[in-house]
Amino acid sequence: MTENLLILLLLVMLIVIAVAVHRLRSLFAAAMLFGLFSLVAALAYVLLDAVDVALTEAAVGAGISTILMLSTLALTHQRTEARHRRHLAALCTVIFTGAVLLWATTDMPGFADPESPVHQHLAPYFLQESASDIGIPNAVTSILASYRGYDTLGEVVVVFTAGVAVLGLLGGRRSSGRQRREED
């Protein structure tokens, strides 16, 4: 029960931080606060038993994303948002979408219900058989690397492709000084 209350509290904290990030006009502060947002999210993941996800979120969200955003601000010399616009159409869209989603949650199984359909199909097999199939105690690693190895290969290729795309966008002639000298 206390665990559930803590999870709710952390989710409320995340909403508060997200609203604060939206209201902040200083982009530098918004980027820093977004790092804090990731850290609180990682804490909530730990409470939800997703330790691998928490480790990833703490390293990636709080570390790399923040550094990349601050570097972007350094490269562009823009520190503040020009102004806030009140967007009535956006507000209506968001409220309508949110209302539909809230209505949809009434059809969902209750939170942490062991009988929910998610837990009936594949998970029992993974949890019972992975120890003898693969011999690795961490079920997340055995699913990631073996049962869903094809999927993970795709994800690694996506990361690689994104890196190559950024290299194409920002690399320019900087990373190939030798080539430039040849052109001259």
């Binding site: 939800l48 972007t72 994800e155 996506v158």
Partner: peptide, 30 residues
Amino acid sequence: YSNPLPHVLILTAIVVSVATTALGLALVVR
């Protein structure tokens, strides 16, 4: 145990999300 399958999906999604965010930021710089 909690269900490990969604953990796997989200773990990879987080790393992919930072890669795509970096791509978006590179576009912003350009």
